[in-house]
């Protein structure tokens, strides 16, 4: 975490809408449960939690249509749960390799395809695919868009720029959400990203918005018009969220010191809501903690997923 980010003013705290708080807490407890399950040896492989970044897809959710396409990445559970909170069991089953898994346990944490939500595990790979989908949506002309989530680390991949170039040249309805959490696995963004995200957007003539707020309502107010323009013009848009990853890159691999982690935690919506709306928050928090615990118990008891190789 660099000094500039640590010195940012802590955002004001507005009470969240019920629906937002529900989604935020679902994702928080879901991700926390995954880390616990890993610790207990009940999940294999790897996972990348979005602790601290939950508000990004939650804020964007009402700006998206159900039939918009969402392309996600390795850190995609929050992106999925914000879109499909009712499918938390299917996602957990996917990660645990249990019956009812969204993709029969084949894709796991990083490779999920459900309706118009699709995630892949190779950095930068999704942007060209998103451009192709957007080309098809543009031809359909019904106002749908493709929302693709990438991180600051993804900006090192050449495919990102190939796709941005195409998206701008071909007027594609492509919303690129850059979750800049200040760290790419273990490498601080300042040491792996030259220039700025804004500068890279400008190079392609693509509109750019920077979001520092963690307040869903405030974020929506700032993004509603630009996202509507993505559909209506149509034309791509890059939105950079200055966000903070509270947890490790995957599991137990955080190399940041206590000061950096404390700075990240200072931006966490969880503690701020707990302080601002103590009773309402405590009730909702307890509710979602219990619901996720029940879900974990229920999914853990399911038979193993079966895959008929096609």
């Amino acid at each position: 975490m660099n000094a500039m980010v640590a010195a940012e003013a802590v955002p004001r705290v507005a009470p969240p809408a019920d629906d937002d708080l529900d989604r935020l807490l679902l994702i928080r407890h879901f991700e926390s449960a995954l880390l616990r399950l890993f610790g207990e040896g009940l999940i294999s492989g790897t996972t990348h939690t979005c602790l601290g970044q939950e508000y990004v897809p939650v804020a964007l959710e009402p700006l998206l249509r159900p039939d918009d396409h969402t392309l996600s990445n390795h850190r995609g559970h929050g992106h999925f749960l914000a879109r499909h909170p009712g499918e938390a069991g299917g996602l957990l089953a996917e990660i645990m390799g249990r019956e009812g898994a969204l993709c029969h346990g084949v894709g796991g944490s990083q490779h999920v395809y459900h309706r118009t939500f699709l995630s892949t595990g190779v950095q930068g790979e999704s942007l060209p695919v998103a451009a192709g989908i957007a080309l098809r949506l543009r031809a359909a002309g019904d106002g749908r868009l493709v929302c693709v989530y990438i991180g600051d680390g993804t900006l090192g991949e050449g495919s990102v720029y190939e796709a941005l170039n195409m998206a701008a040249l071909w007027d594609l309805p492509l919303l690129v959400v850059v979750e800049n959490n200040g760290i790419a696995q273990s490498t601080p963004t300042a040491r792996q990203l030259a220039g700025t995200v804004a500068g890279r957007a400008a190079a392609f003539g693509v509109p750019y918005r920077r979001v520092e707020s963690t307040d869903p309502a405030e974020i929506r107010a700032a993004l509603a018009a630009p996202v509507a323009a993505v559909r209506e013009t149509p034309f791509p848009l890059i939105v950079e969220f200055i966000t903070h990853r509270l947890g490790p890159h995957s599991k137990g691999d955080d190399t940041r010191g206590p000061e950096e982690l404390a700075a990240a935690r200072a931006h966490d919506w969880y503690g701020r809501y707990a302080e601002a709306i103590p009773e309402r928050f405590a009730a909702a928090d307890a509710l979602w903690r219990r619901r996720v615990a029940d879900l974990v118990a229920e999914v853990s008891a399911r038979p193993l997923a079966r895959w008929e190789a096609s």
């Binding site: 396409h69 699709l118 790979e125 942007l127 060209p128 695919v129 998103a130 451009a131 192709g132 989908i133 957007a134 080309l135 098809r136 949506l137 031809a139 050449g158 495919s159 190939e162 796709a163 170039n165 195409m166 040249l169 071909w170």
Partner: peptide, 28 residues
Amino acid sequence: GDRVRSTPLSESAIVGAGAGLALAGGQA
């Protein structure tokens, strides 16, 4: 017309966009 597009020099994006067109119900 537009169903035939000359692209930038971007092999990765050309193939990726082809896959995207296919995933979105088209063929490429």
